[in-house]
């Protein structure tokens, strides 16, 4: 994916900053909105170069829909992860079988890889140890399949179908 134009990246940064301002102030008073917009414009001018590479293309409706659908899916995975942790911690025999496995990913963009690493860390029994290009090294608390394909099927594949659309 090539880089978007500067204007588009700048506008995207301003939109995100202004949304954060809206949430933090929680008021729709015109005076607050003006200051917020001004600050978003200034901060955006300084930071847009490192903030985004694809600009307004991130707001493509298909991506937004997938991102919204991803939230409950991810939260559900996270709750299951915690019940899993609860089981392992509270069980008297402490049923763990840890190890470091390797996974492959199909994601291309850096942000997508970051999102995948974060998702892996917060979901059942896995934590990202290192990422090298498209190889993920993952500490798995209960290794059931230590081949590359098997581990990818178990760990990364469920998220990739969403993240591929959201981040490319």
């Amino acid at each position: 994916m090539g880089e978007a134009s500067k204007i588009s990246r700048y506008l995207y940064t301003v939109i995100v900053l202004f949304l954060i301002w809206l949430f933090l102030t929680a008021s729709l008073d015109p005076q607050e909105l003006e200051v917020g917009l001004l600050l978003a414009l200034i901060v955006g001018a300084f930071t847009y170069e490192i903030f985004t590479t694809s600009g307004l293309a991130n707001l493509h409706p298909r991506r937004v829909v997938y991102a919204i659908a991803y939230v409950p899916y991810f939260l559900w995975a996270m709750i299951m992860a915690n019940l899993d942790v609860a089981y392992r911690v509270l069980h008297p025999k402490r049923p763990i079988n840890p190890g470091i496995v390797e996974c492959k990913t199909v994601l291309k963009s850096d942000v997508g890889k970051l999102a995948l690493a974060n998702s892996i860390t917060l979901t059942p029994g896995t934590i990202t140890l290192d990422v090298d290009d498209d190889r993920y090294f993952i500490h798995w608390i209960n290794v059931t399949d230590d081949s590359v394909e098997g581990a990818s099927m178990n760990i990364t594949a469920p998220f990739e179908k969403f993240l591929k659309v959201i981040f490319g």
Binding site: M78, N82, V85, I96, L122, I127, H139
Partner: peptide, 21 residues
């Protein structure tokens, strides 16, 4: 989990997930 797990990697597993949720 911090008390019960055997090594730093497994402690990290339990503490990160549970503390975040």
């Amino acid at each position: 989990g911090l008390i019960r797990m055997p090594d730093v990697y497994n402690r990290m597993q339990t503490s990160t997930k549970s503390a975040t949720l």
